[in-house]
Design a protein around this nucleic acid. Structure first.
Lengths: 347, 347
DNA sequence: TTGTACGCGTTATCAA
DNA sequence: TTGATAACGCGTACAA
C-alpha cells in the first residue's frame, strides 16, 4: 500500500486503452464511447486514482487557476482591518466567474521561503495598494509576465487599477469642517512609508503611500497649513497614540483621521483627556466601517465601497485572463455626517 | 518580443553551462563556483529569465508549497465572522514556518470550475469544520492522499483535529445561569445543517454540525428540557430574528446563544420588546469576540482562543508535511462573566 | 473514436 | 564543481 500513487498511465493500462484516451475521459474534451468511459472509470476506481495530478496538468496547460492576492503586511493584521475583509469578500466574488481560487501572498521584501511572489504558481495577481513595497511587488510580478491589477495604488502605464476618489472625498469632509467654522485642524494620516514611522510630517515630506498622499492632499485643499501626524498603522490603538500625542501638545478644534479605526482611537484619547466629542473637538474618519466600542458615537466619515472595490478588481483579473483588456475603475466614497462633528467650541 | 518566455535551458545555453548547473544556481542546492554563477545570472538577466517556472518545479518536486483552507460557505461570509478572521490570523502564523501560502478554497458541493478541492495544487488542507459538507470535503481530500487537519469537526480515525471543549464550556455558562436561579431558558443555536434552516428544533432533531451539537449538549446537561431555536447563520441580524421569534411567543428568564453575534442580536431584540438585560432576561454568548454596538453591555460568554486554534492547525499541517505525526489538539474556552447575566426577575 | 509521440520546464541522481 | 540523463504526469496535435 505504500507504493506511489497511480497515474493516468496506470489507469490506461489497467483499462486497456491508451493514456490519451484515459485523459480524455477525465477532461471530457473529446467524446468517448460509453463503454471505454466506463472501463476507464472502473480502472481508476480500482487503482484509487482520483483524477489528474494538478501539478502536471497545470504545467501542461500553462494555467494554475490561482489568483494571488498580495498584501504588504502580516496577513493577520490585514484580516483584522474590516476594509480588507470586505474587499476580500468582493474579490472572491469577482474572480468566482473564473472559478479561480485566491492565494494569500505576502510580500515583505524578504524572500523567506516558497512560495513567494517570485515563485507562486499564479495566473494573475491583485496588489492591494497602500504601500510603497507595492512598487517592488509590481516589478516582480510584471517581470514574471503575470497580469496584474492594482487596487488603490499608482501602477504606472498599462496596469489596470481600481481607485477611490480619495482626495475628493477627503476634501468633502474637510469642507464640512470648514463650513462648521473650524480652522484649527490636525490631520492624522495612515502610514507614509514602508518603515511605518510615527510622527509629525514636515510640510515638504515626501509620502510614499498613494492613499495617504491623496487623502492628505484633499484635506490640505481646504486646510493648507494643517499639521499632519503619521500613524504606524490603521488601528484603534494607533489612533489613541496619535490622539495622546496631539492633546499633549495642542488643542485643535477638529481632527481629520484618515481611517475610522484611527478616528475611534483619537476619540478615545480625547475622552481620556477630558474632551467631549464633538463639543470640544470634532473628529472625522474615513472608510465607513463598523467600529466596535464607538457607540454611542456615529462617526462622521467617508463611506467607501470596499466590497465593490474587491469585486471590481476580481472582474478586471477575470477580463485579463480572458484576453479582454480591462479598463481601470474609479469608485466613489459617500460622505456621511455622524455625531462626531459639530461647531468648534466658542471659547 | 512576442516569443515564448525563456526557460532555464535557454539560460544554460546562453551561459554555456548545462541546464542542471543553471538550475542549481537558482536553487542553491549545491555550491557553484562564483564564476559560473555570475555567468548564469548574467545570461538570465539578458534573456529576461526571472526564475524557474513554479508549475514545472512543483511537478518535479511533488510539492507546491500551498496549503488549502477549505470553507463551507461563501468566503465573504466567512471573513465577516471575527472568529474566522482571528483563526486565519493564527493559521497564517502557524504555516509560516513552512513558508507555505494559503489557498482559499470553497467546497460548496458543486464542482464549478477549477481549481476546486479536487484539482487544487495543494500540499495539505485545513478544513474549517462546523459543516456537514465537511465530511464530503474530507473524503475528497483524503482520496487525493493529501494530509488534512480538521478544525472543530468530527474527522474519523487518524485525522488530526483541533478541537474546543465546546460542550464543557457551554455547560459552564448554563451552570452559571442555573446558579443564578434560572430555570426557564431558551437556547439559540448555530445552523444545524447545510440548509441553514431557521426554527424550533424537535427534541429528537438530528444535528449535523458538530459545534452546534456539542454546545447544545453542554447546555442540555444543565437544562435538559430547554427549547432550542436554530439560527440560519452566526450574525447579529440572525440573532435579532431569533430574539423576536422568542419574545413573540414566550418570556424566558435567560437565553443561551451559541455565538456572541447571535447574543448581540438577541439583546437588541429584547430591548425592542421593552425588556431590560439582565434585569428581565439574561443572555449568554459564545466566542468572546468584540461585538460592535453592544456597549455598554459586556457579554457573559465563553472566550475561545480563536487565534490559537488557527495556529495549532497550521502547526499540525507543518508537522504532517515534515512527516511527523501531529496529535490533535484540544483547546479550552474561558468563561467570562459580563453584565448581561443576573438573577431572574422575582415576579 | 482511439492511439502514437512528443513536449511542457524543471530537478534528482549519479558519474565524471 | 559540473554535466548527462531520466523522469515528474499530463494534454494534445495528428494520424489512423
Amino acid at each position: 500500500m505504500s507504493t506511489r500513487r497511480a497515474t493516468i498511465n496506470d489507469v490506461a493500462r489497467e483499462a486497456g486503452v491508451s493514456p490519451s484516451t484515459a485523459s480524455v475521459v477525465f477532461s471530457g474534451k473529446t467524446p468517448t464511447s460509453e463503454a471505454t468511459r466506463a472501463r476507464v472509470l472502473a480502472a481508476a476506481e480500482s487503482l484509487g486514482y482520483t483524477g489528474p495530478d494538478p501539478r502536471a496538468a497545470s504545467l501542461r496547460r500553462g494555467r494554475s487557476g490561482i489568483v494571488g492576492v498580495v498584501f504588504d503586511q502580516h496577513l493577520g493584521t490585514a484580516f483584522l482591518d474590516p476594509v480588507t475583509t470586505h474587499m476580500m469578500d468582493g474579490l472572491a466574488d469577482g474572480v468566482s466567474r473564473l472559478g479561480a481560487a485566491l492565494l494569500l501572498l505576502r510580500d515583505d521584501g524578504v524572500t523567506v521561503s516558497e512560495p513567494s511572489l517570485h515563485t507562486a504558481p499564479i495566473d494573475a495577481a491583485v496588489l492591494i495598494g497602500c504601500s510603497p513595497r507595492m512598487r517592488d511587488s509590481l516589478e516582480i510580478v510584471r517581470g514574471r509576465g503575470i497580469p496584474v491589477v492594482v487596487v488603490e495604488g499608482d501602477a504606472g502605464e498599462g496596469v489596470p487599477r481600481v481607485l477611490l476618489d480619495n482626495a475628493d472625498a477627503q476634501r468633502a469632509a474637510a469642507r464640512h469642517l470648514a463650513d462648521l467654522g473650524h480652522d484649527d485642524v490636525v490631520i492624522v494620516t495612515l502610514p507614509v512609508d514602508t518603515l511605518r514611522r510615527r510622527g509629525w510630517l514636515a510640510p515638504d515630506a515626501v509620502i510614499g503611500v498613494d492613499v495617504t498622499a491623496d487623502r492628505l492632499r484633499g484635506a490640505r485643499q481646504v486646510f493648507p497649513d494643517a499639521p499632519a501626524l503619521a500613524a504606524a498603522t490603521s488601528s484603534i490603538d494607533e489612533g489613541a497614540i496619535a490622539g495622546r500625542t496631539i492633546f499633549a501638545e495642542r488643542r485643535p478644534t477638529a481632527i481629520i483621521a484618515q481611517s475610522d479605526l484611527l478616528a475611534a482611537g483619537i476619540i478615545r484619547a480625547a475622552e481620556e483627556a477630558g474632551l467631549r466629542v464633538p463639543q470640544d473637538v470634532s473628529v472625522t474618519g474615513f472608510d465607513g466601517v463598523v467600529v466596535d466600542g464607538l457607540a454611542p458615537h456615529v462617526l462622521t466619515t467617508l463611506v467607501q465601497p470596499a466590497t465593490a472595490k474587491g469585486r471590481a478588481a476580481g472582474e478586471a483579473v477575470a477580463a485579463m485572463l480572458e484576453d479582454t483588456v480591462p479598463s481601470g475603475l474609479d469608485l466613489e466614497c459617500t460622505f456621511r455626517v455622524g455625531t462626531t462633528t459639530g461647531p468648534p467650541p466658542t471659547t
